[in-house]
Amino acid sequence: MPVLHTVNKSPFEKNALDSCLSHALDGSTLLLIEDGVYAAMRASSIEPRIRRALKRLRIHVLENDCRARGISEDALIEGVGSVDDAGFVDLVVEHDNVQAWL
């Protein structure tokens, strides 16, 4: 599998998400962790970007980081998957390389 990209920044604070989305090749995977998970919430100004990206990337959030921030599963943009810590490990193992957009 191609690259697993991780983004750990709120899209309202840093350009990590935008930079990631503009570099990630079609068919790669994005995992939102830490403050990065805010990008996956519905109804924000970021939603159209995530929806566009979902057409060419798999996008997941780290469940525990969402729960910590009061983001329930039904608040997530449709099509965004949710993984637990073991799922994070599986994603790392499944992909050839992990690129952290810090």
């Binding site: 750990n8 962790i33 830490e34 810590d85 994070f88 490990v89 790392v92 193992v93």
Partner: peptide, 19 residues
């Protein structure tokens, strides 16, 4: 920063899976 917590959780999850 959460980095140390995230890394620790990842390490535990990876070890639990036998990595």
């Amino acid at each position: 920063h959460q980095a140390a917590d995230s890394a620790y959780r990842f390490a535990c999850a990876a070890l639990a899976k036998g990595h």
